[in-house]
């Protein structure tokens, strides 16, 4: 039977391909539409939050921190409600991670403050003695890339119908709208407004000066992102 295949490389290759492609089809296709539906109360990211998410990715925070709370008592006690598929509907890419060298961050916005993050990112051991996390001092100096974040927002709105500027139902029955500016300049301005709110809670003088001068350090964007994780 198969010895015929070994003498005919083309059909052999086709045979191998069908055998290995089969599993992917069965596993991924049937649930595709259902799994990409957002749950009630899940909002797309604002420009600044998305820029912060890019900072998170740039520094591979996901190498040590998961964003996936499993349905065990120990995990819900420690991190909050277990994760639902719809909560990730606007996560491109997903950031579940595969290793918890540090704690899960799925709902870190519920229990950490801007102030805490500021100290922690500058010197982790000043807030958590014994921590093995490296310090991220350069986040206070580098500027966040708001332009790319805006480009991504426009892309996902156009290609995947992410509901910017539309009413989104919240859990308490109210409606909220995530605004996406029409122009890049508009997006930069709204990101700066958001950044000012975050910077107001920060102590670092240079960060505050930068924000008043119209710049957005990476740390501000990152904190805006982490505060949005709820």
């Amino acid at each position: 039977m198969f010895h015929w295949l070994e003498k005919h490389p083309f059909f052999f290759a086709v045979g191998v391909f069908v055998t290995i492609a089969f599993a992917g089809l069965i596993e991924i296709v049937p649930n595709f539409a259902e799994a990409s539906r957002p749950s009630i109360g899940t909002k797309p990211y604002t420009t600044l939050e998305l820029a912060g998410r890019h900072v998170y990715i740039k520094n591979s925070c996901n190498a040590c921190h998961s964003q996936l709370i499993r349905p065990f008592k120990a995990e819900t006690d420690r991190y909050g409600d277990y994760s639902l598929s719809g909560e990730y509907a606007y996560d491109r890419p997903f950031l579940w991670g595969s290793k918890r060298t540090g704690p899960d961050l799925m709902r870190v916005g519920n229990y950490r403050t801007t102030d805490w993050h500021e100290n922690h990112m500058r010197d982790p051991r000043s807030v958590v003695p014994g921590s093995i996390m490296p310090a991220y001092a350069w986040l206070f100096e580098n500027s966040a890339d708001v332009d790319t974040a805006y480009a991504e927002q426009v892309t996902v709105r156009d290609f995947f119908s992410v509901p910017y500027n539309q009413e989104i139902p919240m859990k308490d029955g109210s409606k909220e709208t995530v605004v996406l500016a029409d122009t890049l300049a508009g997006a930069q301005a709204s990101a700066l407004e958001e950044a000012k709110l975050v910077a107001a809670d920060m102590k670092d003088k240079s960060v505050q000066d930068a924000v008043s001068a119209g710049q957005i350090p990476e740390i501000v964007a990152l904190i805006a992102y982490m505060n949005s994780l709820k």
Partner: peptide, 12 residues
């Protein structure tokens, strides 16, 4: 930006 989101992205 990835063509898949959230759970689908994780699965792929």
């Amino acid at each position: 930006v990835s063509m898949y989101s959230g759970t689908n992205d994780a699965l792929v």
